[in-house]
């Protein structure tokens, strides 16, 4: 290859205006044995650039299989269902409406009698309580004797 052609290419190379093809041409020229003596100085540059591409990655790439997301999601769904079930059960269990139906009487007379009976029962129990308090009046008497 003509020397001045190469020189022109070198000039372009240092101005970064060469194309990839021209740069390959330069690399080929400088890897040959008949490099013109004035251009010897560029030999290592192009020699290095050409050989540096052959270095290889020798390490390994530790790829882990992608996690099975479906299994994860099924377990999440299952636990949500269980939680909801337990929650619903306890909610119902503790909040059962107390029955407010005590029955009723259609006949006012019967109702009056029954009411009276019920009230009598209450007053009887109350009186029983009062009776058991009777002995307290003993204190009252002795108190009246002492403090006239």
């Amino acid at each position: 290859m003509a020397l001045d052609n190469i020189e022109k290419l070198i000039e372009k190379y240092f101005d970064a205006t060469t194309t990839l093809a021209e740069e390959k041409e330069l690399k080929a020229y400088f890897s040959s044995d008949n490099v013109a003596p004035p251009l010897e100085q560029y030999k290592p540059i192009f020699g290095y650039m050409a050989q540096a591409k052959h270095e290889q990655f020798t390490g390994t790439i530790p790829l882990k299989a992608k996690k099975r997301h479906t299994v994860l999601w099924i377990s999440v769904a299952a636990s949500v269902v269980v939680l909801l079930g337990v929650g619903f059960f306890t909610f119902n269990h503790y909040n059962q409406p107390v029955s407010e139906d005590f029955g009723t009487y259609d006949d006012p007379a019967v109702a009056f009698r029954e009411t009276q009976k019920a009230l009598e029962m209450i007053s009887q129990s109350v009186n029983e309580g009062i009776e058991s308090m009777d002995y307290l009046s003993e204190y009252e008497q002795s108190k009246n004797i002492i403090f006239k």
Partner: peptide, 10 residues
Amino acid sequence: EDKDTWQWVE
């Protein structure tokens, strides 16, 4: 020899 000069470049 080549290796040496390449190392310079590097």
